[in-house]
Design a protein around this nucleic acid. Sequence first.
DNA 1: GTCTATAGTGGGATAGAC
DNA 2: GTCTATCCCACTATAGAC
Lengths: 179, 179
Amino acid sequence: MAENSTGGTQTLTERQRQIAAAARALLDAEGPEGLTMRRVADALGIKAPSLYKHVPDKTALELLVVAGGFVEVAEALEAATADAAEPLPALAKAYRDYAVAHPHLYRLMNYQPLRRDLLPPGLEERAAMPLLAATGHDGDKARALWAFAHGMVSLEIDGRFPPDADLPAAWKAGLATFV
Amino acid sequence: MAENSTGGTQTLTERQRQIAAAARALLDAEGPEGLTMRRVADALGIKAPSLYKHVPDKTALELLVVAGGFVEVAEALEAATADAAEPLPALAKAYRDYAVAHPHLYRLMNYQPLRRDLLPPGLEERAAMPLLAATGHDGDKARALWAFAHGMVSLEIDGRFPPDADLPAAWKAGLATFV
DNA sequence: GTCTATAGTGGGATAGAC
DNA sequence: GTCTATCCCACTATAGAC
């Protein structure tokens, strides 16, 4: 394990961290169209071919960004659960806030198969832990809750709810069932 | 209303129906990468530029395909509700079955804003009706149910559930809360 | 309603010199 | 570790002849 270059499982060089950060910034600012090898290179003041000395290909670069997103999501959900008067609504709010704040990253993380084999070990589990805890460690219930939350935020960020839909009310109606 | 050409609200020529059908077949078979003006034209034995005599641009063509999908979804959900011993599980099964059978079409329909202004009037409402009825015409509850179902099927077709996840159990756990 | 020709744009990635 | 040069690919869409 602990491969690098980076075909997987982390420990990054300084340059790799810079590349990932530039890619993340471009994705946040412009969406997936903005995330190209040329644009990332431009942001670092180098030429696109030079990137290939640090990263094997574009999907590896995207995975770096995805991994960063998982860390942030885990931190956000852990923080929301920490004070915990009512864990479920707090968790839901944190999940939604993160997705709405970073819609492009959210899609990159969740709209395609996850390369678990190349992700830092335990990272996905860490991000899922607060959900699991909130359902009394019932895996099926946790997945149902995740699906509900994912459905709500993806329909929101993809602009699929009708303009007049009362989203907070829909969240409440859905969450009520999980208490 | 009743524009054509087609910048909107239906009544198609024979050629337009052929074009939409070819596009749909390509999308089902190869996904969005396969759905290009060249490939659609090829399938009809003509050249890509000729398509522009029948359809203003590619997004208009995609909307034709989306509209066809809504008709099919509406029919599937209506059929599932018809016999109705237990409407909710039947509805969920029909929704899931359709999405899993046509994942590329499902994404085209649901992963981007819906051009309601260009869709045949009443079509979206018709497709939503069975959901609404199943929640006793509670709009917020219906949207929550939709979000749950959408979350489940999109996580499934996008390959985001862990390999060991028990999907039927998650559906059951989620649906239980809506009864 | 079809065609040819073509404009215009963009992308990922490699070879090989320095 | 960076560069230049380059190859490959693909796409949407328009102009104008027939």
